[in-house]
Design a protein around this nucleic acid. Structure first.
Lengths: 359, 359
DNA sequence: CTGAAAGCGCTTACAG
DNA sequence: CTGAAAGCGCTTACAG
């Protein structure tokens, strides 16, 4: 097995110069029709695959992008990774992954590692409560429209607004909003949207799971059944993950969804459609977000290269706040026709499990 | 802002040759203590970051690995990606991701794209029902020990066996096993293990979700309540995803878990611990699997380079079948003390939701 | 339209 | 212990 053919092999085989071969392959220098064809033919015949290392060295561009997520263990990571990989790949870029395992300073280290590896630019989905400073290289931040320095993101606030209206339309007037971290811009935007919808039309209360778990341990019950007894008819979680937790806690408490209460989530995680009841949720348009992030990044990269030259490319026209899509499934239903909670049998005390959590 | 310093800058600043600087930085050639120290100092002072492209070009090694998953939309992807990224990064390698979106031939294309991008080797988690042929470059396959060509994998069969025994120990004698695709080696291994445990001690039946959905549409009910009426007391899903579906379908059908029936899963997906009841499951040791896969890959890569030289490194000693870990949570409990289903009130017909699935 | 040459930043025998 | 030189595979002005 000969090792991979290179430009020089092709040049030799055809008795031309490597410069000409290079030009023919890239279509840049003007090469005659016939020679060009012959070269490309020979290239194919020899199974020529350009060496990215060689190209990178001479152009100063690796054509590799870095993707840094705060925590690639997060269930949303697959959606991001898939969309970014696709958009990057379409643009001729590879995607290197970096992980900060949710650690706040490992995030910068991850970014640096990718830069050292030669990434031309980085896409960052920052950890809640962190900002991305100047990293000396093009960067696209996907966080929330309310975050300074944000490049592109879903319109979380409008998403919340629409979700709130959906519940309102169903007749709900008392909703409990379930969030995780109060320093997450994304979550706060979603919450603000929901509240805006209910402003003057119903009451909202807010549960931060993070705080509850700090006091009562991770996986602790959220006391949702109690809230139902107090009149809450809908639970709007800012993530499907929390909605799932709510659904199972409520169902285990003998509360039927959506007949007794409605539950909604955010993000349309992969299992959202197959649980029972299937989950009403709000989906980001990852494809568009990824496309825009990548386009922005590549624009920055090209600008960098052309800084001295006066070629000012037009900046990609920039919608940076992408609408979300409401996906109505079974977990949210009308409050109408449902008797006030009082009329219904008292919340059934389902026998609590006595098995405890052990590993 | 000067552009990045390189070896030559350091050499010039110190009046030595780049060869010496290179040797000092890599610690290979013998360089005097003092000169070495001075060079490293100056390097740090100048903020020297080695150019991977330069190194790659001269060594023929990119120090980048490719990670190809059949479908990076899969909820297990985060665990894989995190573990692989970590192991690779420890070994000085970056990780490029490739996606085949579950498509069977896109898988080979994804692999090829990564190779063209210069990956020194590829880690593949193949789609169920596919095999990875020779790709002309080192490859590590993570599938199942029963798969020919498998490099390393969790011991799915023993995992199934242990899960079966767990249910048996709890007193279950009739279990329904829930799988998705009958051409998945991983699933078949898990199923075989569960059945082995029950052989001669209880009865098992098997549900393939994939087949049901082909007839009745995706997200269709699995008819589990009916099975409970027929005497099934435990549902052993080969993935948490299916266990979740089972739990919610059963709970919505008014069946209590684990008081009426037990449900178990596989993989310990991120939400497994926080749903109610929390899910008993079987976890792969991703860290070890990733370490071994990466070690094997790097060994192959080094061998490749040393092929002509007679330096035969010892192959990494190879446990390739990694034990899984049973995680007992609330969703599985004793069948003891539980009245035979007949004694309990007839399965309560929870009012079915009339809302339909709409987007 | 085509080619000779220099250079991207590094490593690696080989001399000294 | 140190350095001059060649080479990895490509691209890019610049000549011809």
């Amino acid at each position: 097995m000969a090792s991979r053919a290179n430009l020089s092999d092709i040049a030799k085989a055809l008795g031309v110069s490597v410069a000409t071969v290079s030009n023919a392959m890239s279509g840049k220098g003007r090469v005659s029709q016939e020679l060009g064809r012959a070269i490309r033919e020979k290239a194919k015949e020899l199974g020529y695959v350009p060496s990215l290392a060689g190209r990178a060295l001479s152009t100063g561009r690796s054509h590799v992008l870095g993707l840094v997520l705060a925590d690639i263990g997060h269930p949303l990571f697959p959606q991001f990774a898939q969309a970014i990989e696709h958009a990057a790949s379409e643009a001729g870029y590879g995607v290197l992954i970096g992980d900060s395992r949710g650690d706040i300073e490992a995030q910068s280290r991850a970014i640096n590692r990718l830069i050292e590896r030669g990434a031309d630019g980085i896409v960052v989905v920052p950890r809640h409560g962190t900002c991305i400073g100047d990293i000396g290289r093009p960067v696209a931040v996907i966080d929330s429209p309310s975050t300074p320095g944000n490049t592109v993101a879903a319109d979380h606030r409008s998403g919340g607004l629409e979700m709130g209206r959906h519940l309102l339309d169903l007749g709900h007037r008392s909703v409990a909003i379930i969030g995780l971290h109060s320093d997450s811009n994304v979550q706060n935007d979603r919450i603000a949207g929901i509240r805006e919808a209910f402003a003057g039309k119903g009451e909202t209360r807010l549960i931060w799971i993070g705080e509850m778990e700090r006091s009562h341990g991770s996986g602790c019950p959220l006391g949702l059944v109690r809230l139902v007894e107090e009149g809450v008819t809908a639970f709007a979680a800012v993530s499907d993950l929390h909605a799932l937790r709510a659904i199972t806690e409520l169902q285990q408490g003998g509360i039927s969804i959506p007949d007794d209460v409605s539950v909604t989530g955010f993000d349309d995680l992969i299992w959202a459609g197959v649980i029972a009841p299937s989950l009403t949720t709000m989906r980001m348009d990852m494809e568009r977000i990824a496309e825009i992030a990548i386009a922005d990044l590549i624009f920055q990269i090209d600008q960098d290269g052309a800084r001295d030259a006066s070629s000012d490319l037009p900046a990609p026209e920039g919608q940076s706040c992408i609408p979300m899509q409401l996906i109505i499934r079974q977990s949210s239903g009308p409050v109408l026709g449902r008797a006030a909670l009082g009329e219904r049998a008292p919340v059934q005390a389902w026998p609590a499990s006595s098995t405890t959590d052990q590993v």
